[in-house]
Design a protein around this nucleic acid. Sequence first.
DNA 1: TTTTGTGAATTGCTTCACAGCA
DNA 2: TGCTGTGAAGCAATTCACAAAA
Lengths: 229, 229
Amino acid sequence: MAKMDHVPLPAVRRLSIYLRQLECLQAADRQTVSSKALGAALGISDVQIRKDLAYFGQFGHPGVGYRVPELMRRVRRILGTDRTSKVLLVGAGNLGRALVAFRGFAEKGFEIVAVFDSNPDKIGRAIDGAVNGPRQDAKVRDLSSHQRTIQHPSQMAAAVRAGDIRIGILAVPAEAAQGVANEMASAGIRAVLNFAPATLQVPEHVAVASVDLAVHLEQLSFQASYTGP
Amino acid sequence: MAKMDHVPLPAVRRLSIYLRQLECLQAADRQTVSSKALGAALGISDVQIRKDLAYFGQFGHPGVGYRVPELMRRVRRILGTDRTSKVLLVGAGNLGRALVAFRGFAEKGFEIVAVFDSNPDKIGRAIDGAVNGPRQDAKVRDLSSHQRTIQHPSQMAAAVRAGDIRIGILAVPAEAAQGVANEMASAGIRAVLNFAPATLQVPEHVAVASVDLAVHLEQLSFQASYTGP
DNA sequence: TTTTGTGAATTGCTTCACAGCA
DNA sequence: TGCTGTGAAGCAATTCACAAAA
């Protein structure tokens, strides 16, 4: 990987989009794709795509384009999804259960290997989810036994160390979110996917991405009012 | 509303965040807040906040700050959530059902008033969800009867016209997403909240916001690899 | 003094224009 | 010719610096 000094974050986000489209192209047995064709399918300019990729090295073949399998491999490598990442989940409510059941994670190289909840009634209980997804080998199936048992948050640090877990999903009510974020940070979690409608204060070395449906809907409500005829 | 010519989209997104924090302040009976205090709580600079608000008019009181109830009212007005917005949902799978059950929508001024699915087995069946949320008056309760019955997508245009619906939530598998987006657009929907992992091609007057968990996780995976010690 | 609102400067991202390779 | 990779230019968003109001 060449000159990775200061990559714009929007470029990283688009890398995921490129990968998604490449998976689609591979399913259609396309061997190569030009930045122009890729951009047309995604509503992104061809130069943008080349610039984004150029932050990470030289992937293309002048006159030919990008070779689909090669580019997929290299983009996955950049994103860190060439190996399966272990993820922990805090919050075994409605949303938490839906996330455990969600097949899309495993297909993209993420496995929820531990679930935590502070509710004493839930601790020790099974959480039923997608433990029988596609990409499962013996090792992953073994890990999925952890997945079935809800643990107390005090176990988090031990789980992070034992399992080399870097990513945590936060799916608790807004009032509890900051406390859980603090626990995650001191447990050694490096990145948090936050579903609580709250702004999290975390140490600088911890990355946060927030998914707030209300924020999205409000943005759309605004755009629906102030565009068009 | 003063000089609304070209507002940066990031500013609109932050407006939602400000509103969320204002709701929190109001719950704590705070009467006024300065841009500095608000920014400190949200990890945003005070100038950023004043600039964002200035796109829409003058809300503050020099030497005092912003009056919490007044600013909430005016921000809601800008976002279009001072009145309840009717929303339709396409896709009555796991995610769709979870969204119907989600309380947060009603609290923020959004009501799912119609649900569509192309699966013949589901059409006409009830979809159980949060029809007994807090903010319910007679009119809303009446609308919730629609909510209980899954309709065929061919009914969408009629529902949009009859109910003055501007926003659609798209919760179908990726393969079906573009087709549904087309149907939404020709039904007159003006904004789409897309949960399918696919890029949608829509007419210019239709706004799209996408929530793709894989994209978020991949971004975090990248950040977790290339930051810190 | 505290705090808002805003033109000016700056930063960062995107687009342009073109050199280089197949 | 068709396509990638990249320095230069352009544009959009943020931050700075300060005038004006309570």
